[in-house]
Amino acid sequence: MIKSAGEPADDLLQVQQCLRGDAAALAALRARLDGVLKAILRSRGASLTEAEDTLADLWGDCVPKDDERAALLEKYRGNCPLQGWLAMVATNRWYDAKRREIRGVEITRQAAEMLGASHAPEGETRAEAPADNALMELLKDSLKAAFLACGPREMVMLRLVFLHGLTQRVIVRMLGWNETRVSRALSAAMQQIEKKALQEVRRRDPWLELTWGDFLELCETRQIGFS
């Protein structure tokens, strides 16, 4: 019996049932998560058709098939909730497909411009080879731009407080500021990182609709669930 809970330990148990060939377990898993995943993809910019196609492929790849490819669920280690893990895989797949589609259209247009309309290539044009992990590249590059836009002093302050656990009072002594100023500087730096990172995502791929919560969740899931 599949539970509806989303604890990683329960999730791992369900995944193991699916991988053992329990069709009912897979059906229950799909019934539990398909709607949620569809809603997540839609909120991130996928059309209904894109979301449904992505998920149909994803569920098909979850368990072993006749070919020699590893089943998708074999990669799940149970160190983060399955819903978040599958949402990341689905977003990745949809993002790659969408990029290929858009690049394909761009290449067609450019080729048509270069050759003249009468020599435009027919039908579907070549698409760029799928990037190994294009979504992660996007997040990383956007974050890099955001960190660079943040002042060096503020980056050091953020590292001292949030990575090394120092109190703001210690920063006060270091900089000769008052606590309010330190607190404001930290808040402003985080807000700037958020704003710049999302700006960068939109600049590169205006069709991708990520909230800051999405951005953080994808970073965290990549860090925990795929390491």
Partner: peptide, 20 residues
């Protein structure tokens, strides 16, 4: 805010040995 920066830094640092 605490967890956010930690999450971002951990994500970024795993890709950026050469930059860091």
């Amino acid at each position: 805010m605490t967890n956010s920066f930690k999450t971002l830094a951990a994500f970024f640092d795993q890709f950026n040995d050469e930059v860091q």
